[in-house]
Amino acid sequence: MKHLSAIFTAALLCASPVFAQDSLSGPEAFADIADETERSAAIFEEMGKVLTHPRCLNCHPVTGGPTQGDDMRPHSPPVVRGDADFGAAGMNCSTCHSGQNVEFTSDQGSIPGHDPWMLAPVEMGWVDVPLADICTQIKDPERNGGRDLEAIHEHLAEDGLVGWAWDPGKGRTPAPGTQETLGQLTRAWIDTGAACPS
C-alpha cells in the first residue's frame, strides 16, 4: 500500500531515494598492476566484495546457524545447521524456504528461496575470517568441497545459489556487480596465478 502524508507529499515527490550501490570492477580495472602476483591478489580483493557480502556470509557461518539481513543478525526463527547443513529434523530449511523467493502477502519483503537452499559446509565458513584466509581456504580442496580452481570458477560463475546473491528478492540488497563480473574476476584471478592477498 502506498502511504502518503498530506503534509509531506511535496517533499516525498521530490526526494527520490539514492542507494549507494556497491560497484564491482571487472578484471580490466587491474590491468595496470604490472606484477602478476600483485595483480592476482588485487583481483581477489575485488572478488572479496562479493565473498564477504552479507548475501554470501549469512549462509557461510563458522559457528551455529545462519544469520540474516545486512546487519547479519541471528536467524529468526532460531535454526541450527543440522547434520546435513539443512537444518534440524522437524524443521529443516525447506520448512520455510522453497525454490524461489516468495514475497510476503501482508508485510514488506520476502522470504528468500532457491533450489537447493542450504548452508555452506562448516569448513567453508567465512564469517569473521580475514580475506587472505578466505583465499587460502577457497583454494584448499580439503576445505572447499574437493574443488580444483576450474571447479571454483564454475561455482562462482555459474552456480545458481551463488547467483541468488544478485536476485535476492524484495527487501534485500543484492551483492555488488553481477555474477558475470565475478566469473570474469575469478577467471582472471586463476589466470594470474590465483594469488592471495597478504
Binding site: 543440522g82 534440524a88 529434523a89 522437524g90
Partner: peptide
Amino acid sequence: PTDEDINNAMAGNV
C-alpha cells in the same frame, strides 16, 4: 528426541 532435538524442531512454532 532429546530436549535439544525438541528445541531445534519446535523453535519455529510460537
